[in-house]
Structures are given as C-alpha cells and as structure tokens.
Nucleic acid binder design. Sequence first.
DNA 1: ATCAGGTGCAACTCCAGAGTTGCACATGGC
DNA 2: GCCATGTGCAACTCTGGAGTTGCACCTGAT
Lengths: 116, 116
Amino acid sequence: MDEARGLDAVVDGVFVALADPTRRKLLDLLAAQGEVTATTLADGLPVSRQAVVKHLTVLDAAGLVSGRRAGREVRYAVRPAALDATARWMATLAADWDRRLANVKRIAEATERDTP
Amino acid sequence: MDEARGLDAVVDGVFVALADPTRRKLLDLLAAQGEVTATTLADGLPVSRQAVVKHLTVLDAAGLVSGRRAGREVRYAVRPAALDATARWMATLAADWDRRLANVKRIAEATERDTP
DNA sequence: ATCAGGTGCAACTCCAGAGTTGCACATGGC
DNA sequence: GCCATGTGCAACTCTGGAGTTGCACCTGAT
C-alpha cells in the first residue's frame, strides 16, 4: 500500500503538481514514451537533468509517476490512479456547486417575489 | 461569450488557481454561502481583504467565480463550468494513460520473450 | 582495472506570487 | 450634507519554489 493520506491530501498534491507547465510537459513525454530515465527526459526539455529530477520527485509524491531501478538507471512511468481520483473529485464538486447554485437562485427568486 | 481561449489555457488557469489552499478555501466558502462580498469572505479567513480580492481576481481569470456589482458592493459566486471542463479533461487523460500503459506493457513483455 | 554514462547530494541564485499596509474614491443610509 | 461601509489602487516585504552548477558516487562495459 502506498496511500495512507486522505483524499484531500492526494488532491492537493495533484493540483500543486499539475500547476507547473514543465511538470505537465514531463507527464506528456512520459505518457508518450512509456518508461524513460530522467536524463532522457531532460534531453527533450529546455531544463537541466537536476530540474527534471526535482519535478519527478514532486510528481512521485503526488502519486502521478513512479520510478524503478533497472541496473544503473531509474526508469519513470506514469500512474493514472491519482489523476483519475482527482478528476472524479472535481466532477463531484462541480455537480455540488450546480446543486447549490440552483438552490440559491430559487430562494433569491422567492425573496424577490416577496419584496419587489 | 467569455471563452475565446483554448481548452489548454482554461485547464492551465484552473490548475494554477486550485493549487493554492487559500483559494480552495475561498471556493468552499463561496459554494456554501452563495453570493458573498470580498469583505465578508475575508472575515472567515486569516488573511486581509486585499489578499482575498487578489485571489478572487485569479479565480475569476480561471473562470471559477464571477462577481457582479450590487450597489456599493460586489457579490461573488461560484461557476461550475470551468471546473467541470477540467474534470472531464483529466478523466480523458487518465484513460489515455491507461491505454498507453497497457500497450507498453504488452510490447515490453513481447521483447522480454525474445531476449531472455 | 579503467572508463563512460547515469544517478544523488548540496549550495547557490533568482523571481513570481502571497500577503501586507496605507490611502483615495464611491455609494447608501441617516 | 455627513458619516459609515465597501471597494480600488499602489507600493512594499518576504518566502517558497524553479532552475543552475559542481562534484562525488555507482554500475555496466571493455
């Protein structure tokens, strides 16, 4: 098991991770190439390998990627679970807002009708 | 109309907006209270009104909230559309990753079988 | 044994943005 | 007209994070 934190913590990590454009580009590359090393990823980006490693650490903490050693190199790959969980969380939230907005609108109209 | 930008720009704005905990708290309060002023919102948070106003500007740019004047005050409310769009975008992306991972795994196993 | 390519660690610079304070401007109520 | 309340604008501080550089440490290959 790897998730002892609450859903809120997961969601928070994902948002922070996805807020950076370099990290999103990194996820694009990883999704396209499968299992790649940090050095290879740095070749396709305008930043140093160290910067890539730091980003991968953030993405790993967010549960969006994971790396495994293979000899002298570490291959990283994408993990859809956290992204999917956050997507569902957001969809639920959006639906909740819709519901509340409908309520507020209804009440406002009723009040408006009483005091024109 | 209010959306002349691409979907990527919308998604980017939403991620940046949601990455900040104070802004998420702000959205919570807005969703709970319906239409509120910046001053009222600041009362329920450990930050100044000016900070709240800045956050509301970011949230507005992301399409997550909108404010309308009512006399001498500006009432803000939540807008589910951008959140929902981003949620769908993420869900699609997660599904895409799943698909790619299945492919990569299949190819890797085939290669492994050829060169044991 | 030696070399090359990859990783890990640490110290450093730099700037965007989160937050503050202070004041000027508008608007509704009295 | 006067006051209270809310908004808008500008300048300022300060911390976190993105990025860099330099070097030491492994590991696979020859």
